[in-house]
């Protein structure tokens, strides 16, 4: 069983590393990730959102809906924990 797990892990890792072969190098300023969508966040942040912190402007404006989801995740987790751990006050247990 241990061996099987190890094999699964090694194969997964090998596939991931295989994928890195064609990746743009670390910190490459001309990588697609830096050229396609993000320039607008950098150049237009003041103009469109009046926020100098780009992370903030993306988080709370461009992709604000993700952040709504994020808060919902926290809410879900909170409710889940209450649901799971709330002790019965009366009755058995």
């Amino acid at each position: 069983m241990k061996i099987l797990n190890l094999i699964v892990v090694v194969i997964t890792g090998a596939i991931l590393i295989y994928g890195t072969m064609d990746m743009p190098g670390w910190g490459d300023p001309d990588s697609p990730a830096s050229l396609h969508v993000s320039p607008r966040y950098i150049t237009k942040t003041m103009e469109e959102t009046a926020t100098p912190n780009m992370v903030t402007s993306v988080l709370a404006d461009y992709r604000a809906y993700d952040t709504l989801g994020e808060t919902t995740v926290i809410f879900t987790a909170g409710m889940a924990c209450i649901l799971l751990l709330r002790k019965r006050r009366n009755g058995h247990g």
């Binding site: 989801g69 879900t76 799971l84």
Partner: peptide
């Protein structure tokens, strides 16, 4: 990515339920 976020909402709720 938005799909991932909602996937996690659904999953977390599922784990608890």
């Amino acid at each position: 990515f938005n799909l991932y976020v909602f996937l996690e909402i659904a999953s977390l709720a599922g784990y608890a339920l």
